[in-house]
Simulated assay, not measured.
Amino acid sequence: MSRPAAVVRPERPGDFAAIRAVTAAAFAGAAHSAPPVDATGDPGEAALVEWLRADAGYLPTLALVAEEEGLVVGHAITTRGWIDAPGRDPVPALGLGPISVRPDRQGRGIGGALLAATVRGAEALGERLIALLGDPAYYGAHGWEPASRHGIAAPDPAWGELFQVRLLPAHDGARGTFRYAAPFARLG
């Protein structure tokens, strides 16, 4: 018997506590998670989601939850980023992350559904590209490629091929260094 597919929709204020719990659980114990930044002891990504909501780069239509049987089981937030190049005005782009799926629901296509919905939403807004930091094997299977192949440098050169982009139909060949929304810098 198959399970019903997760429903992906924009987040609502009533989801915020569940989103924090999903994000904290998804990043707890992960080798790449940010250290706690508040008294909760949750991985830094849980606080980052809240900081991003309070930032001017917050795009509510691209802050998505995956819901199964009324429970939030996944979350992805995409915020305004920029591509900077010397002598040129910054070019708007998108930064995806954190993206989280409850550990007991991983491997069921929920992350892929969140990624697909994010891409559709970004395309509908006429965005150029989405950047993220993550596992190339996983994200590559969903259409992401190393950003360096497209002349887009990571904010931290040490990220190498972990820094990836998904080019969208409105991409106009912009090249330069990607800059995430300001709250990302708070994680250090």
Rank of each mutant, 00 (worst) to 15 (best):
S2A: 10
S2K: 12
R3Y: 06
P4T: 12
A6N: 10
R9L: 09
P10A: 00
G14V: 15
G14C: 10
D15I: 14
A18T: 13
A21Y: 02
A21M: 08
V22T: 14
F27Q: 07
A31F: 07
H32V: 09
S33R: 08
S33A: 15
A34Y: 02
G41V: 02
D42Y: 00
P43H: 11
A46Q: 04
A47S: 04
L48G: 01
L48C: 01
W51Q: 06
R53E: 02
R53S: 03
A54Y: 14
G57N: 12
Y58C: 02
T61M: 13
T61E: 15
L62G: 06
A63G: 03
E67V: 15
G70W: 00
G70K: 09
V73K: 04
V73L: 00
T78L: 09
T79M: 08
R80T: 06
I83P: 03
V91S: 11
V91A: 14
P92V: 15
P92L: 15
L94R: 02
L94Y: 03
L94S: 03
L94G: 00
L94A: 04
L94I: 10
G95M: 05
L96Q: 08
V101G: 11
P103S: 02
D104A: 04
G109F: 02
I110E: 07
A113D: 11
L115H: 10
L115M: 13
V119D: 05
V119Q: 07
G121C: 05
A124I: 12
L125N: 00
E127D: 11
E127W: 05
E127L: 14
I130R: 11
I130E: 06
A137Q: 12
A137P: 13
A137E: 11
Y139D: 07
A141I: 03
A141Q: 08
H142R: 13
G143M: 08
W144H: 12
W144E: 07
W144V: 12
S148F: 05
S148D: 15
H150E: 11
H150Q: 09
G151R: 14
A153D: 15
A154T: 13
D156T: 09
G160S: 10
V165K: 11
R166M: 02
P169W: 01
A170F: 01
H171C: 13
D172W: 04
G173M: 07
R175N: 05
T177E: 14
T177R: 15
F184P: 01
A185H: 08
A185I: 13
A185L: 10
L187T: 07
G188H: 12
